[in-house]
Design a protein around this nucleic acid. Structure first.
Lengths: 122, 122
DNA sequence: AATATTGCTCTACAAAGTAGATTAAATTAA
DNA sequence: TTAATTTAATCTACTTTGTAGAGCAATATT
């Protein structure tokens, strides 16, 4: 690895989903969450390989759910973000916040202007 | 491609650098910019392959600098972000803003608390 | 036992990220 | 006027991330 400092774009999204889902962070929920929140439709394989790799890197931990749940089906695998995972996220966020500096506003203005123009010339 | 909706993490950074550098957006400057601003040290190859791919995807355009500049060395290749490129960036930003909702604050509080504790127990 | 349900594992491939030696084009020094 | 020097881009080969979906496992229901 070159930098060991930045993580992939999907990896970031998965980590954030796990944080958001807290106690309910397991495969199917994560998949639904990303689809609902940001329209990111992951295949089952795409999700689980990413989870697995995050675990290997020490950015996530996993534990199997209680074997005897009041429902059919296999046990859930719950994930949690480690301190390292949190740090990796923070670094990425800081970097992007920095890189967006001064651009977000322009974008907002541009958007607003565009809307105004559309109202004038629909 | 699965989604055609999200771009890579480095791709985002490079696009943002090009926006920030405006008229001075060419290889060496982009490389310096990312190193200075966010500590991302790219090898030459890493940068140029990314630029090339972004161009192929239509997210960047390139033009060769004037052949006769007042200096030694080869002509610069200047890059600019296309409308598509801007859109791709916006989509990514929206997604991450959404995913960070509610977490950034906690993080800030945690950070502040940590600092306070350090002041109490240095 | 057979079936339904839920959720994870596995295999294989495509796209993005990485490295650095090499080449190119111009300027300056010998 | 050829040999350094400088600046910057191309090329090749490889690693890591992202992607897909069929298949398997474990439990509950009939």
């Amino acid at each position: 690895m070159a930098q060991d400092k930045f993580i992939g774009e999907l990896e970031q999204m998965v980590l954030l989903s796990v944080l958001q889902l807290k106690a309910e962070a397991y495969g199917t929920q994560i998949r639904l969450y990303l689809a609902d929140k940001v329209g990111r439709d992951l295949s089952i394989g795409a999700l689980y390989t990413t989870l697995e790799r995050l675990e290997q890197k020490g950015l996530l931990t996993a534990r199997l759910g209680e074997a005897t749940a009041e429902r059919g089906g296999r046990a859930k695998k719950y994930f949690a973000v480690t301190a390292e995972g949190q740090q990796a996220l923070n670094r990425s966020k800081q970097a992007f916040d920095q890189l967006w500096q001064g651009l977000a506003l322009k974008q907002a203005i541009h958007g607003a202007l565009h809307q105004d123009l559309m109202e004038l010339h629909p």
